[in-house]
Design a protein around this nucleic acid. Structure first.
Lengths: 203, 203
DNA sequence: CCACTTGCGTTCACGAATGAATGTTTCCGT
DNA sequence: ACGGAAACATTCATTCGTGAACGCAAGTGG
């Protein structure tokens, strides 16, 4: 038959549903939280049956582990694109810090927080998340080197990045209790100034 | 009868069981996490029946809300005692920051993180936690004024405290995935130096 | 001392979530 | 086109957590 849709190979079909499940899982985590992210709920959101889920991920922890990985990949793409588009110039440090901050206030990071928090007492989930976290860390460090080329070669650079990232994480946690609130954003204005000074002094 | 134990009034009995339940709930949160902190589990830990729990707290969210409050009270007592015992002198700022840091790496704060994270998507729990958080914030701010009397009157003091607390929170989150790990502690050494400089410059 | 209240324990019914077992459709190699 | 394999769907049994109803025992005020 000459339908417009070319016959899709099985591997393509498979990849599509897999993505749909992961996207649904992430959306579910963001909007309904870890506790309400059940296998049934995710399948429903993806417009699939529970069987489809079971076919791709035998267990719930497997699904969430894959979702975490998917999450990091998505963040990587968005961040990389934004970083490449960032102009060089005198305001580069401040804007680079802003970029980093935005990647954490993003709703996606709330999903990560949910996962990480639960992994503390769920050995199976933690097992899944440990390699993902390593990738996340490397990703962040690599990005900062690109964002702050002036200071990147300094010996204290890694410490300053740790400080900045820790501060950002700490600010973002503020907003978990106040969804849509901008407490983190308000405090960030002042914090960014201090961090920028430290990074520029190092350059 | 002349037993050594004087007859306890009902109010005393009640208060004892209530405390036992709250302590059990907190211990359960710390060791087994939010998801495994079920009403049955808490009652078992407290050496009581589920009926006892249900008598004092009709719903699970009520128990957890009360537990969060209890948590903040306990932290207040410990912190206040430590702060009162802190000597004045040249190292006061650094030691004060350490004190603050210790109050966050404490396992009790992991329980708080679990609660706060879940409250994001659980309206009933969030309702319970909002006033508790306000108390916690006031408590922290009051303590810092006592710890850093030199800088407390400066206009930028509140901003510096926010920065310090955010950094500490962000560092502590690191350890959720690595229980018993001291990644936060290691990064703290360097971060504390920077924060101390800022606070001392303000004094 | 007795009626009444309050703290505490037991049992039951309901709902929800998970994963296993078993069908049904879609695709690919020959 | 046809047989096998893989993707996907349906149903089932089990487990677990919750909160309500009920019942007993211990304390309190008249």
């Amino acid at each position: 038959m000459a339908t417009g849709a070319p016959r899709r190979t099985q591997a393509e079909r498979s990849a599509t549903t897999r993505e749909a499940l992961l996207d649904a899982a992430i959306a579910c985590l963001v909007e309904e939280g870890y506790a309400n992210t059940t296998t049934a709920r995710v399948a429903e959101r993806a417009g699939l049956s529970r069987g489809a889920h079971l076919h791709h991920f035998q267990t719930r922890a497997a699904l969430l582990g894959a979702a975490a990985d998917h999450l990091v990949q998505r963040r990587r793409h968005e961040l990389q694109a934004a970083a490449d588009a960032l102009p060089t110039g005198p305001g580069r440090v401040a804007e680079g810090l802003d970029l980093l901050f935005e990647s954490y206030v993003h709703p996606l990071y709330q999903a990560s927080l949910d996962l990480w928090t639960h992994a503390r007492t769920d050995p199976e989930l933690r097992e899944q998340l440990l390699p993902v976290e390593r990738a996340f860390d490397r990703q962040t460090l690599g990005l900062t080197r690109q964002l702050f080329p002036g200071a990147a070669s300094r010996p204290e650079f890694d410490r300053l990045v740790e400080l900045s990232v820790a501060t950002i994480r700490g600010l973002v946690v503020l907003d978990t209790l106040h969804p849509g609130g901008d407490r983190a954003r308000k405090q960030w204005a002042s914090a960014r100034e201090q961090l920028a000074r430290l990074l520029e002094d190092a350059a």
